[in-house]
């Protein structure tokens, strides 16, 4: 969870002087300066990691049954693509991810908002939410597959069940921790309950909601794989499962690598979204 912070450098106008021009320092979000170098370091870290993986796979392990090298993994991806399966698998898993993630996040935000604003509903729902959040819901995946079948919707439900609870908890925490003075400001200017919600609480919660989305990405990807392992007709997790039963390590690694890359890409897209939606919030995790 993130907490919006307000500390930064200060500018004070001189006594009685009306300032007509911006000082040299532009309004910045406080992170812009380091963005370039942090991307460079991340890229470097990935390159070094892949190189180590290649070296260990090729010289230390030397047996592709135990560990496929990056190179073998790449050719695994190529084989899967040319055989025509990968496109279909990506589409199926992609749909499961997108639907599950979007529905789960939206529902999580909605439920979080409701329990934050309504004490009775909080009392009713809290035991279930803490219960489901703490249990490994993934263990319920086989039952969900049984109920919802082998098509994409059983996996969508698995993903929803993984994404929704952290988002409920984060959204509720965001609204609950809203600075009371800020609510008072809106009220003192005649703001209604709805306006206080829209103009204060929702904005205050935005960094929390965005953090919930970031948590959700990882959990949604896990949901897709595990859901498909328990029963599917297509999808990347399904392909991983097949590759494993055929001891086809390059294709198994290929499947896993695609998930890892998706994780990196989606998380990165969310940090971009944070920069666009909440440039005012400093010090996020």
């Amino acid at each position: 969870m993130t907490v919006p912070s307000q500390s930064s450098s200060h500018v004070e106008p001189a006594p009685g002087v009306v300032i007509g021009k911006l000082p040299a320092r532009k309004p910045s979000n406080g992170r812009g300066m380091h963005r370039k170098s942090s991307i460079t370091i991340s890229t470097l870290s990935i390159v070094v990691g892949i190189a180590l993986w290649q070296i260990i796979g090729q010289f230390l392990v030397g047996n592709s049954l135990f560990l496929a090298t990056p190179w073998q993994t790449l050719s695994g991806i190529r084989d899967m693509w040319t055989s025509g399966g990968l496109r279909e698998d990506l589409l199926v898993s992609g749909e499961e991810f997108i639907f599950g993630f979007l529905i789960g996040s939206a529902a999580g935000i909605a439920v979080g908002a409701v329990i934050a604003k309504n004490r009775v509903s909080k009392r009713i729902l809290t035991p279930y939410i803490s219960g489901f959040y703490a249990t490994p819901i993934i263990a319920l995946a086989p039952i969900l597959i049984l109920w919802f079948g082998l098509g994409i919707w059983s996996k969508v439900v698995v993903v929803i069940s993984l994404v929704i609870f952290p988002q409920i908890i984060n959204t509720e925490a965001g609204i609950r921790t809203t600075e009371e003075t800020l609510r008072d400001v809106a009220r003192s200017y005649g703001g209604s309950t709805i306006e206080v919600f829209r103009k204060v609480e929702l904005w205050w919660s935005l960094p929390y909601i965005l953090a919930g989305l970031r948590l959700g990405v990882g959990r949604a990807l896990i949901g897709v794989v595990v859901g498909e392992l328990f029963g599917a007709r297509a999808g990347l997790g399904f392909a991983i499962n097949n590759a494993q039963s055929e001891f086809n390590m390059p294709e198994l690694f290929a499947g896993v690598a695609i998930f890892a890359v998706s994780g990196i890409v989606f998380t990165y897209l969310l940090t971009v979204l944070e920069r666009v939606l909440a440039p005012w919030a400093a010090n996020r995790p």
Binding site: S5, S7, P13, V18, I19, G20, L22, P27, W280
Partner: peptide, 21 residues
Amino acid sequence: LQLVGLGGFEKYYPRQLSGGM
């Protein structure tokens, strides 16, 4: 905003301002 001495600071966010501002 000019009157209170904030002309030119319209686009700043609160965390970029001092307590007085």
